[in-house]
Simulated assay, not measured.
Amino acid sequence: MTRVVLPLVVAIMLLPIGVMVVVASAPAGSGLDGAGGLGGGSGFGLFANIAEMFASGDFPVYFRNSLILSSGIAVLDVIFAGAAGYALARLRFPGSRALFVLVVGTLALSPTVVMVPVYVIVHQLGWIDTFQGMIVPSMMSAFGVFLVRQFALGLPEELLLAARIDGAGEFRIFATIALPLLRPALLTLFLLQFLAQWDNLLWPLLVANDPALWPLPVGISQLQTQIGYDIRLMTTAALVTAVPPIVLMFLLQRYYVAGLTLGGVKK
C-alpha cells in the first residue's frame, strides 16, 4: 500500500513545480506573454526567460535583498539563539528556569500581536526604510532558543566536566566542544529561519517603503506593473524564487532530520 500511496503523494506535491517549469519554459510569442495569440513560438525558452527576467525590471535587486535579509537573520539567530539555548541548558544561574518558561511562553503569542509595538520601536529608532529595521526585530527567535536548549540537554556531561577540570572557561567550552556537537540543531535552525524569512511578506511590506529595499515576496507582487501581464515571465520569477530554498533544503536535509529528532550525543 505504501508503495502506491507514497509515489502518488510525491507526484501531487511536485505537480505545481512541474506546471511552473512548463509555463516558464514557454518561448516568447507562445501566447503566455500577454502579446495575444497562441502558438506563436516554439522550443525550450527557460534559460532565455530567466535571462530576460534578470535583465528586465528590478528583479535582481529583489533577489539580492532576499538573500541579504534571509541569510543575515538566519546567521544572527544561530549566533544568539545558539548561545542562549546552550546557556539555559548547561549553565545554572538564578532565574534560569523562569527565564526559559518566559521564552517558551512567547511562542504562544501571534506575530501580529507584537507587530504594532515593534513597528513603533523601529520607527522611533529611525530604522524605517533600512535593512536593520527589517533584520534586527527577527534576529533571535524563541523557537531557536527552545530548539538549541533541548538539543544541548543531550550533550555528554563528562566532556563538559572534563574541560572544566582542565581549566577551560565556559566560553571556550562552548566554542570548542559544544558548538561542534550542536551543529545539527544550529543548521536546522538556520534552514528553518532562512525559509521563513525568504517567504516573509508582511514585515518588509510595513517597514520598507523604498523599492530598492524590497525582497522577493514584496517585489514580485509589483512586477506586473513593470513587465505587464506576462504569465511567462511572472512564472519564471516564481520558479527562480523557489530555487534557493529547494537547493538549501537538499544540502542540509540530513542535518535537518538530525536536528528535529534532537539526536545529540547520548551517554
Rank of each mutant, 00 (worst) to 15 (best):
Q150T: 12
F171H: 00
S66L: 09
A26S: 15
V122T: 11
D210M: 06
G45I: 11
Q222C: 00
L189P: 14
V104E: 07
V61H: 02
G57R: 06
L187R: 10
G45M: 05
T130E: 07
V207G: 09
A152W: 13
L38G: 10
L202H: 00
A83Q: 11
L186Y: 14
D33C: 08
A83Y: 11
I165T: 14
A87Y: 07
F143D: 03
D58G: 01
I173W: 04
L88W: 01
L32I: 04
V23N: 00
I246E: 00
F47R: 05
V78Q: 05
A98V: 13
V265D: 00
Q124F: 02
L159C: 07
V122E: 08
L155R: 04
G72L: 05
G154N: 14
L216W: 13
F80L: 15
A74I: 11
G41M: 13
L91S: 02
A55S: 15
F146A: 07
L186S: 06
N200F: 01
L109S: 10
G72A: 12
L206M: 07
M134K: 12
S71Y: 05
L161V: 13
L223I: 05
L107Y: 06
G219F: 05
V78M: 14
L125N: 03
L206T: 15
A24S: 13
F59R: 09
L192Y: 00
A26C: 05
L192H: 03
G82M: 03
L223V: 02
F100E: 01
R164W: 12
M1A: 12
S71M: 01
L182F: 14
I121V: 15
F174Q: 02
Q197D: 11
V145A: 08
P137S: 06
A163V: 07
F47S: 06
T261V: 15
I128Q: 05
V10W: 10
I220D: 05
L107F: 08
H123A: 15
P111G: 04
V118C: 04
Y229T: 15
R92L: 08
G29L: 09
W203M: 11
G263T: 15
V19L: 11
R183N: 04
V10S: 10
F131T: 00
M20L: 08
E158D: 13
T236E: 01
T2P: 00
V122S: 08
G167D: 09
T130H: 08
G40K: 04
L14K: 06
L233Q: 05
G57C: 01
V265H: 12
F44K: 00
F44S: 00
H123E: 15
G82A: 09
A87M: 09
V120M: 14
V148Y: 06
G85W: 14
L46C: 02
G45Y: 07
L125Y: 05
L262P: 00
F151R: 06
M115F: 04
L262V: 14
G29D: 03
E158H: 15
V136C: 02
A168G: 00
P204E: 00
P215V: 01
I227H: 02
D199W: 01
A11H: 02
Q132I: 03
